[in-house]
Design a binder for these strands. Structure first.
Lengths: 206, 206, 206, 206
DNA sequence: TATGAATGAGGGTTCATTCAT
DNA sequence: GATGAATGAACCCTCATTCAT
């Protein structure tokens, strides 16, 4: 029994290592430039071993995706459960999503460019995202109810814009050498999200 | 002479067809899933023919990219030259960029996932983008000078947010069936861009 | 009539140009590295034109081969008809063969490495060579009869050795920087051919 | 351990088989007519297997070349170390070189016609050959010192002639059906090498 | 007749996957 | 269970040859 669970534990650990190596390589090279051989090499096992943990390259990617999504889900649940205002929650959401989607983005890479994958798990991904969207929706609607957010904007649109902020990070490579730090940038982006770029109307004179 | 130009014209037309088919397939499948064979098949020519027009798969992609970027460039120049206010210009910019980058987006696909390509044209792409960014910067700065835009926000950040709005369209596949039309959506996104999602402060009573 | 022969003459000239360009490229690059396109380009005509003069790449090579062999044949006939001694004739033969086979060697290149060609014209080549061999045989046998050449050596072997001298030139690339000129080298080789490398036996002492 | 060496042994064996099949095909068809597919087929393995042993077609050829040259090198070292006279040594050298270069000649084929290869290993080949030439030089110079060889002939020329004898075997295909056996032929060629074709001067009548 | 774009078979190479050890 | 050599389908690309203009 104990042996069993020990073995099982080792198996889990190895699986974890594989996923980790996969994520690293995915970030470094992309899906197609990452071969099973390279993954095996980085983990320090034989190619065949990968196939004892994951049925195929595709399956490995899906597993990685789910694993990452799980982390994201947990983080989001945490935020949703906090006792803070709607704006603060949305702000934290943005930080979290930025980290998980933009910084650890292979998730997006995989999906967008491996059309086989898309076919396989597209529906599942959609559901995952919809779960997140639902939680954000609740917060946004709450904010509207509180009178904090602009009730005339469809919640869905607010969400869209929120994702836009996050996603823009994915393309940072194509922007010239940034003069603002990442933290500042996100701060400003949130500012735009909450207040827009329009100049604040001066207080009506006396 | 006439014969010359006829042949030349046919050549141009075929080249156009190849680029078109390539774009379609790129959108349908992505860079790696699109083989030269498939492109040829879709155009209805032999594989070898592709190589008479483009030196390699890579060259074909670069040509496609440049062709699309050219269209975008022209559109942007037009807007930049218009005699309208800064906000209107930015609004038109968003529409144009949405159309060119998000709707006809293979341009982005190619770049993000074909690392061979990146090496080859990354710098060139950067320059193209920087050109666009420069033009937008001018407009944003103009708006700040006019007192229309919030001068305390770095121009660069405004741009980042602007791209975020556009780019979010790329991931629309992962959003559930939209209840708002695309036009409405963009309209709202612009609204957020200009005013944020915060509820307008009620006019001070009395 | 005159027009006919003028056209015919032009045709001949063009054919000559093609053969010449082919030979050059063959020498520069070898058979497989020389494409029909390159030949056409060097001649300054379209690829299709080549095919109006020669049925195929193979046919072109065979034609080139025959053309070169014809030159060699003429040169050899000349020597054979001279009124000089056997050794002088053989000496001239060596010079001629060195020039035609070793210096203008594509003939050999083609044959040895394009096995399709070999199949096609192997017999013909053999006959050509046999013709040359026959003429040399006559001279060698004459020399034997005159008591100039060693009658105990089979004529065939003498010939083999003669070809060896010539052929060695083909591999000159793999020898280090020669310190002797080509002319000297051939002179010495002939010396070896006629006298061997053994030190001359000193005249028996008184 | 034993398992290790078993696998390693099998690997070696297969590699040997590949080299052998390659050599055969090279002899039958030449470099360009020999495709990796054909080699694989002859060995009875999949194309991909070849690439597990050799990085590329070129690498395979180079490996073959080195393998053959190694055998030759060993054979030559043996002769050089023998306790026999200079002429005997040269005679053995000729036999050895005839066997290795003329009978198992793909080595030469490859070099002469695959210009990609030349670039890659031309220098290396030159060095190999120079090594052999150096050893022969020593013997020839020794022979000169002993008064056995004609000291008025440059050593380099003697060598050239020696290679000529050997190389002539490469073109045997173009000679008619030989009436002398190969062994006889080589014997005679050596005779020519040592004594030339000139009739021996009759002993001065006493 | 000259042209050169189109053709498509064939070549070298890669890599996810399998399976004997 | 772990290994890594073997597999073979699929890919990008070349080039001799054809044929409409």
């Amino acid at each position: 029994m104990i042996h069993q669970s020990l073995k099982e534990k080792q198996r889990q650990e190895r699986e974890e290592l594989i996923l980790q190596a996969t994520q690293e390589l995915l970030l470094e090279r992309g899906y197609y430039e990452t071969s099973m051989g390279e993954i095996a090499q980085r983990v320090g096992v034989a190619k065949g071993t990968l196939y004892q943990h994951f049925e195929s390259k595709e399956a490995l990617m899906i597993a990685l995706f789910k694993s990452e999504f799980h982390d994201l889900h947990v983080a989001i649940e945490n935020i949703a459960g906090m006792q803070v205002g709607a704006q603060e929650k949305i702000s934290l959401m943005i930080d979290t999503l930025c980290y998980h989607l933009a910084e650890k983005h292979p998730v997006f890479f995989i999906m967008r460019n491996a059309s086989d994958l898309e076919a396989e798990i597209h529906e599942e991904i959609k559901e995952y995202f919809n779960g997140i969207r639902a939680q954000i929706s609740v917060i946004l609607d709450g904010g509207k109810a509180e009178g904090i957010f602009n009730a005339s904007l469809p919640t869905e649109v607010m969400m869209e814009a929120l994702f836009g902020i996050i996603v823009s990070r994915l393309f940072k490579n194509f922007h010239q050498g940034q003069q603002v730090t990442y933290e500042d940038l996100v701060g400003h982006l949130k500012c735009i999200y909450f207040h827009g770029i329009t100049a604040p109307t001066p207080a009506p004179a006396g």
